[in-house]
């Protein structure tokens, strides 16, 4: 069930709830699945030195990032009994409260999807060259670092 070639994981702008809902809908025909698990990364309006984050502008080293997403995907299929997996990450501006990362894993059984989802999300945070410019309400900015 794995793809051989890296796919493009990136989408311009925020990931809409319609898109997410539609992804769930599309899986209703895959009736070997008994459990889905979904992670949604949302841009947080952090307050730093009395300034509030209004949006994050995402950029990436896209070639390497898509390669890394592909490797994470392959490793996850190897480690866990998954029926399918989808990853989408935003590029460009995503406002506070909007979704910037959508990870969707599916399996016949529930225990697998909890472990698999955590594995995939942590690997994305650690290994994928995506950069985030946190833009404050007063239009100044700082560069985000994953903790």
């Amino acid at each position: 069930m794995t793809d051989k070639k890296p796919k493009n994981v990136f989408k311009e702008g925020p990931i809409s709830s319609e898109f997410i809902g539609n992804s769930i809908y599309k899986h209703q025909t895959k009736t070997s699945i008994g459990a889905h698990n979904i992670f949604l990364g949302q841009v947080r309006a952090d307050v730093i030195d009395n300034k509030t984050v209004a949006a994050i502008e995402y950029t990436a080293y896209e070639d390497m990032a898509n390669q890394k997403f592909h490797e994470i995907r392959e490793a996850a299929f190897e480690k866990f009994e998954l029926t399918c997996m989808h990853i989408y990450h935003s590029l460009g501006m995503v406002k506070a409260g909007e979704i910037c990362l959508f990870v969707f894993v599916s399996s016949p059984r529930r225990k697998v999807v909890f472990e698999a989802l955590e594995y995939v999300v942590e690997a994305i945070k650690a290994d994928v060259p995506v950069f985030g410019k946190e833009i404050f309400e007063d239009e100044t900015h700082q560069w985000k670092v994953n903790s």
Binding site: M64, V121, I124, P129, V130, F131, G132, N146
Partner: peptide, 10 residues
């Protein structure tokens, strides 16, 4: 060659 600052994905 790419110079990559700390990652901030997700």
């Amino acid at each position: 060659i790419a110079l990559l600052p700390p990652f901030a994905g997700g």
